[in-house]
């Protein structure tokens, strides 16, 4: 890492781009269409979405860092297995950590923490970026992609919780209980928002909006 620091500052323009690119131009969910499974499954509420985002940021950035550090001594033929072991080890750490300090959330997310191992974004970044770059840019790339993934998760989770249950992080925002103002004017929570189908629609609409604003994305896929 010191080698990198000598040549360029830690957050040079190129490195900043590694962080900012996945947020919009190269978003793992809306542009690369990876990691859809968990984006549909865990986003029924905002809290699990945020926890999931943090977990993925952790796993993906450290997996990138470790793989980039040992990329030159890793035999090419077994690199997939090595990568998987690294991801699995990190996911296990996250899983145990959540069980110890946030048991409720851990129960809520259940298998989806374990399934971070199969999240295509993690493997995809390792293969596409960490195998060919130095540890520090790889680490930043991991954080950037994790943030890009988390951003979509939080938008979807927030919208679904707000319109499906009327709360955000458990606090009532749109209160439609008996006797409240919204109940009086006939407001009801949207049942579709409670189902994963809603996440599908929201992600689709996000992709639509993003491509309408950002013309250079239109012909990529």
């Amino acid at each position: 890492m010191s080698e990198v620091a000598e040549k360029e500052p830690l957050l040079s323009k190129k490195n900043r781009k590694l962080l900012s690119d996945p947020l919009d131009d190269n978003n793992p969910i809306t542009v690369q269409v990876l990691g859809i499974c968990s984006a549909l499954a865990v986003t029924s509420q905002l809290k699990p979405s945020i926890i999931m985002a943090i977990c993925v940021i952790f796993v993906i950035s450290f997996a990138n860092l470790i793989v980039a550090s040992i990329r030159k001594i890793m035999p090419g033929r077994i690199r997939m297995i090595v990568q998987l072991i690294i991801i699995a080890a990190l996911v296990t750490i996250v899983d145990i950590f959540l069980k110890a300090f946030a048991f409720d959330v851990s129960k809520e997310l259940s298998v989806f923490i374990g399934l971070i191992i199969t999240n295509c974004i993690v493997m995809g970044r390792l293969e596409a970026f960490a195998m060919g770059n130095k540890p520090w840019p790889a680490f930043l790339d991991g954080i950037g992609n994790g943030l890009g993934y988390g951003l979509i998760l939080i938008i979807v989770g927030g919208l679904r919780e707000l319109f499906g249950a009327g709360t955000l992080l458990g606090f009532p925002i749109l209160n439609a209980d008996e006797g409240s103002f919204l109940h009086g004017i006939g407001y009801q929570h949207n049942g579709i928002m409670a189902t994963p189908a809603a996440a599908m629609f929201i992600i689709g609409i996000l992709i639509w909006i993003q491509r309408a604003r950002n013309q250079k994305l239109v012909d990529i896929s």
Binding site: Q188, G191, I192, A197
Partner: peptide
């Protein structure tokens, strides 16, 4: 179908 799944009571 949107109404049917979003607001089934109606």
């Amino acid at each position: 179908v949107f109404l049917f799944f979003a607001y089934p009571t109606e």
